[in-house]
Design a protein around this nucleic acid. Structure first.
Lengths: 216, 216
DNA sequence: TCCTGCAATAGGATTTTTCCTATTTAATGT
DNA sequence: ACATTAAATAGGAAAAATCCTATTGCAGGA
């Protein structure tokens, strides 16, 4: 069909099965060819160094061990500016979308998109330089409109405290663990209750879990 | 290569991109052919009814809207006994593995397996009738050994209480909501603390969330 | 009917949490 | 050296949570 050289793509994803499957899919698109895939950012750095053929575009997963999508994106922006990057991930978290796009990603795809959309995204990114799905565009608009509710910032110690507050420890025990007076802990507690608009420790725990301050 | 008719496979997964990608991968295996894919259990029922060609094997995702993998597995066991099923999912939750296998799944694959393993699993399932990856086999052994820790049973009211305990309500408020005396609530609380071996309300909240008693 | 088991309830004490306000200390810029 | 600020700390009190034990009411089985 297409006589010109196909566009070289690289896939970065720690899920071997998904990466391999996706490779087959991308190869089935007209005019695209998957050069190789990398397990994570580190692996990608290595392969970019060792393999002379450079991709035009990278499909980058965000959740990876070793070196995740964000770190990888930062590194690519600094070291491989010519390569276009499309973020490809499960989560449509507004914060993450903004973070990736402002780090220089050309687009942000959700893994539940239709295969034809992926094809469209690849073509459009190479042609126009960017691609934004309806869903992501919507998310962005939403975040611009409803942004007055900015997320509060936390100090290191506050985050430490919140994590410990999500355990069965009493405040006295937490104070010991953090080498602070119980009264200082009480100060953190109060400050956080106000900042987060919660009524009690359970509210704090729920906030911390909802916002990935800590995992259980 | 293989002159005999290829083995027909059906993929059930709500992620269009993954399903389509996986289709390409499976088609690339020697002797396999993907008939079609379904978005969920309901969709599968429909397609099994409408499409005369029956698959020999179904690759079944667990997390789906509408009709999830567990329900689908139950239905398949009752209505399409001849079709072999391999569960294919992200989570290596022992409970889920056991649930699927005891519902008649021929194997349980994690989505992070290597593509060749998938090929192997398909071949072996059709030949021997089952496939168990090292990881899953290990999980099963582990669960058999360390099973003395059975999960406690909860009464309706206890579950109601736990859900409310995972909010910012005080016990007095919870008592009002449940139309019980605060002292009764205190009884539930104490009983649950003992049963679950937790020290305080935060412990209870964490237990409830870990065990999907409630969502946040 | 009597016994038994379970859910609901209570009394009373102690500990922890929560709230409000104020002071000390350390760090930082001018 | 002095003003400014943020972090750490304190006092004191009310509210909520936690603990232990005991009683009541009711339903079902012997």
């Amino acid at each position: 069909m297409n006589k010109t050289a196909p566009h070289n793509i690289v896939i970065v994803d720690d899920h071997a099965l998904f990466a391999s499957s996706l490779e087959k899919l991308v190869n089935s698109f007209n005019g695209f060819n998957v050069l190789y895939h990398a397990r994570n950012g580190k692996d990608l750095q290595l392969k970019l160094k060792q393999i002379p053929d450079k991709p035009e575009l990278i499909l980058l997963d965000l959740n990876m061990p070793v070196m995740d999508g964000f770190e990888t994106m930062e590194w690519l922006r600094e070291n491989q500016e010519e390569i276009k990057v499309l973020a490809l991930t499960m989560e449509d978290d507004e914060e993450k979308i903004i973070k990736m796009l402002s780090s220089g990603a050309k687009g942000y795809l959700l893994k539940d998109i239709h295969p034809e959309k992926l094809n469209e995204a690849l073509v459009q990114t190479l042609e126009k330089g960017f691609y934004h799905s309806e869903k992501v565009a919507e998310s962005l608009l939403h975040s611009l409109n409803s942004n007055p509710s900015e997320k509060p910032e936390f100090k290191e110690r506050e985050i430490d405290f919140m994590k410990l507050a999500c355990t069965e420890m009493t405040y006295k025990e937490i104070a010991d663990k953090m080498n602070l007076s119980p009264k200082t802990i009480d100060g953190y507690r109060q400050e956080l209750f106000n900042k987060l608009d919660v009524k009690n420790r359970v509210g704090l725990v729920i906030y911390a879990l909802k916002n990935d301050i800590t995992k259980i």
